[in-house]
C-alpha cells in the first residue's frame, strides 16, 4: 500500500502511535501538531489524506479547513475528522467544509483505522 497521509493532532502520544501504525501499514506519514503548522506541512507534502483532529491550539480543525479551502483548493484530498462524541456541531461543520467521515478517536482499533484509510483512499 501507498499513500500520503497527514496526521494533524496536538496530543503527541496519539500522533506518535498513529504514525507508527500507518508507517507499519506502509503509508507515507507526516505529522503536524496544530492547524497552523498543518497548513505549512500540507503545502509542502501534498497529502492525499488528512486525519484531522478538531480540538487543537493555535488553529483548530475547523480553522484549518477554512484556510486550507478543502472543497475548492484541494478537492481530491480526503479528510477524516477525529472527534469525541459531544462535538456533533463541529462534525457537521466539518462535513459542510468537505470532510469525508468522522472517527471517534478512542474507539477505532488499529485494524479498523487501517481499514478506514484504505477504503477512503480507494474511493
Amino acid at each position: 500500500m501507498s499513500g500520503k497521509v497527514l496526521i494533524v493532532e496536538d496530543e503527541i502520544a496519539l500522533s506518535d502511535v498513529y504514525k507508527t501504525l500507518l508507517d507499519q501499514a506502509g503509508y507515507d506519514v507526516r505529522v503536524a501538531e496544530n492547524g497552523e503548522v498543518a497548513l505549512g506541512v500540507a503545502e509542502e507534502f501534498q497529502p492525499e489524506m488528512i486525519l484531522l483532529d478538531l480540538r487543537m491550539p493555535v488553529l483548530d480543525g475547523i480553522g484549518f479547513l477554512h484556510k486550507y479551502d478543502l472543497k475548492n483548493a484541494h478537492p481530491d484530498v480526503k479528510v477524516v475528522v477525529f472527534s469525541n462524541y459531544d462535538m456533533q456541531k463541529e462534525i457537521d461543520e466539518a462535513y459542510s467544509l468537505g470532510a469525508e467521515r468522522y472517527l471517534l478517536k478512542a474507539w477505532a482499533s488499529p485494524k479498523e483505522l487501517i481499514e478506514l484509510v484504505k477504503t477512503t483512499l480507494g474511493k
Binding site: E11, A13, L21, Q24, A106
Partner: peptide, 20 residues
C-alpha cells in the same frame, strides 16, 4: 486519561492484530 488510554489501545492493538 483518555489520551494515554487511547495510545495504549493502539499499541497493544497493533501487536494483537499482527501489525508487528
Amino acid at each position: 486519561l483518555r489520551t494515554p488510554a487511547t495510545a495504549t489501545k493502539q499499541y497493544i492493538g497493533m501487536v494483537l492484530q499482527g501489525f508487528m
